[in-house]
Design a protein around this nucleic acid. Sequence first.
DNA 1: TTGTATGCGTTATCAT
DNA 2: ATGATAACGCATACAA
Lengths: 341, 341
Amino acid sequence: MVTIADVARRAGASTSTVSYVLNGRTSVSEATRRRVQRSVAELGYHPNAGARALAGRRSHIIALVMPLRTDMYVPVMMEIAVSVTTTARRHGYDVLLITSDEGPRGVWRVAASGLADGVILMDVELDDPRIPVLREQGTQASLIGLPDDAHQLSCVDHDFATAGALCADHLADLGHRDIAFIGYCSRIYERHAGYAERTLAGFAERAGERGLRFLHRPCEGTYESTAHTLDRVFAERPGTTGFVVQNEGAIGPLLSLLRTGGRAVPEDASVIALCPEQLAEQQTPALTSASGPATELGRVAVEQVLRRLDAASQDTAPEDERVLLAPTLTVRQSAGPAELS
Amino acid sequence: MVTIADVARRAGASTSTVSYVLNGRTSVSEATRRRVQRSVAELGYHPNAGARALAGRRSHIIALVMPLRTDMYVPVMMEIAVSVTTTARRHGYDVLLITSDEGPRGVWRVAASGLADGVILMDVELDDPRIPVLREQGTQASLIGLPDDAHQLSCVDHDFATAGALCADHLADLGHRDIAFIGYCSRIYERHAGYAERTLAGFAERAGERGLRFLHRPCEGTYESTAHTLDRVFAERPGTTGFVVQNEGAIGPLLSLLRTGGRAVPEDASVIALCPEQLAEQQTPALTSASGPATELGRVAVEQVLRRLDAASQDTAPEDERVLLAPTLTVRQSAGPAELS
DNA sequence: TTGTATGCGTTATCAT
DNA sequence: ATGATAACGCATACAA
């Protein structure tokens, strides 16, 4: 193994000088800097991570806690993970992968051991048991999702309220008046999942402003439950021409039920999905959809943690950020003017 | 921060004794062991990762290199990553996530810095530029996929040849005689991608043994190319009643083309897919398919690396393993008896 | 600008 | 079975 001492010897400098040029902590004359850099290159030197962590009291590692069983669409999770990793690398950090089945102990473990300098939590619940652990240990963290109490934490999430509002606007613009909002199963609303409530609230408010009538119907996401839901919607509001779906499982069933029910999409019924782009694109017809930028989510989370780390290392209190990323409505083939209906 | 010295003091023992009970390197009397363990629990002590890595010359971290842009089905990648992580944890190891865009340098970096003790490569090409790096550094590694030269490496992959053979068998059992094998685009065969060739070879051999006639047709995986391919197949062999598809992109198009072409599946044409279970299940009709165990892949890869690490730490040459995991053929609704055709 | 010296927290060696 | 102590490789405060 080639150590910093080897480099120093070869460059005719001291180990501290080598360390300085590597970390840029202090000014080094151009001449010695170059000698050192040549020695580094020639020897293929790379600082030992353990030693660096021990002496520098930071591992340059961020832990990313990934959900195991989740309703989250896997490719999006993956997109976030990749974005986290590449962003972290750009800042000289590496990413440690933790699965959520380790629970609060996993977070405690990587923080207490100094294995990770900071943590990113991906599947945050409103009252997440890992949050107290973070606070107790003073672990710098960024949460993807909004918990009830974000005190001492930074978080970033999609702006679900705006996503809902965009759907209302688009359907209103197209002249629809009676809308059905096919949501998640009622369990999710009962436990007050943030994203579900925020979407619905954003939709409801904008719908009110735009003079839309709408029915919110929870749905399990199975074929049967979707069929049942749809029946009830048409029984109650036969004039319904617009649909907003926020249940990935219900998308396929809804489309095929409308079709077999003799309603063409988008001619007789307009459908807007709240789902990842990929999912919207692979339906037939391709779905007009509202979705947020997954890559940004990962990037912002990393930057939040790094900012907190910086602040903490300068003994200043880290700022608790709370970023909501604007979603986009992408017009595809599933929503059309109401006049045709 | 609570250190091993704190624990030692409280337990009335020396730091070495504490280290012993924690690592089980030597025998410790039951009495002191319990005193130590109590102190550990009471203080909430967790060994510092950096110090441990420095003194013990092993980080207890495995690097997992994930493909960025790939043809690999994302949920399966994810499944492997999760399996790697949970298996590693079971053995006291953590997983560092590296993206393949770092290239050979990324592998070099984590190995040279001692950040990771071993490496798992997920998107191995036949002549992968990262393999020489592994060999030069003597880095212990496991590859998911079979490279041309696996010397000094362990690897694990699906047994694609058997997967191909299973498809031939099943169609033969059902009485089919004329089969079309819809493969990847010709580019993939030209660069001799291992999995594509091995599947085809396994299928061809078994097909020969079972007296099947078959046409191998590469296919881009787009709707147009699939249509073109299908036209040619029927022009050349009008009596074709069985299809084997090993191109995820072609699955959807193939099914809808058969349907619109007036051939019902499975009554008029039987289709077997070589693809992940999830993908097969979400088609209509659900596809009879052959696929390998992704979770096992991750588990075996970790165990291979750990075995190599063990051997190396005992100064014995690690064994180069080469494991092929048996695939399973799952009968669903897309393949039926030939008599009906 | 550069070098010296110390400490980081643990493991491992060698006594006892 | 247990304890003292020397590495481990680097960063940094301080001296020069």
